[in-house]
Amino acid sequence: MPAAILLIAFTHYPTVATVIDSLFSKATAIRPSRFVGVLNYQRMLDDPIFWKVLANNAWFALGTIPTSIALAILMALFVNRSIPGRSLVRMAYFTPTVLPMIAVANIWLFFYTPDIGLIDQIASWFGFSGHNWLGDPTTVLPAIMVMTVWKEAGFFMIFYLAAMQNIPPELEEASQLEGATRWYYFRRVMFPLLMPTTLFVLVNAVLNSFKLVDHLFVLTKGGPDNASNLLLYYIFETAFSYFETHFAAALTVVLLILLSVMALLQFFLLDKRVHYR
């Protein structure tokens, strides 16, 4: 019961309130808010920045999710074996996850700084001239993706590591006896056994690709010219910089729908393939 109250007060009620808010116009002292129906949504369709941030977010998700999951599996495989200094390596992989996003973004801001940044200094040893990573609309989004993958992969690795340690060692021994190669074992035995974890990680990764915008405040503020703007950051700007709370509510509804549809799709489509039979 207390759980239900909390859920209603902090989840269901705000959701409903947001939907209702999104149907009203911006209130000022001179012009009170009034019901405008789907006007906010129509405006959204005509808003080039909305389409831009949506496309950016799709690229951002596509660029970060598969890479970070693949990297997480690789890292987990690596530290699942007995190698010297194993716990140290595990910790090293996990460190980016522990750091606050704002701190991380501040560090990477200096990595990416043209000429004096770490990346350009290393590149200069090999004779490359400096590049303005965050100031060039073609490289700014990839640059942010790299940082996000670096930040996320260690977190997902932990789940894979836990899952791998739950796989009975007999399976590997048995497949070795049968003459299966390591790759075959991974592909036909281990990876299918990891599917529940992959589903969990995938859901989380998709949510995060829409939820994580902390770094934008520090790194780019969505610039240059919206080249790195993401949906949630645009919602924040609309609500707190432009004070268009009702338009922001409409954007939030779209975000909510997007996320629920994607979570449902993942559960229903993948659920059939998740469990090892």
Partner: peptide
């Protein structure tokens, strides 16, 4: 001046490092 945009937050560092 470098092409593209120039970051507000790191500019002071650029100046202090003589860039």
């Amino acid at each position: 001046m470098p092409k593209g945009t120039i970051e507000w937050g790191t500019l002071r560092q650029n100046f202090l490092e003589g860039k």
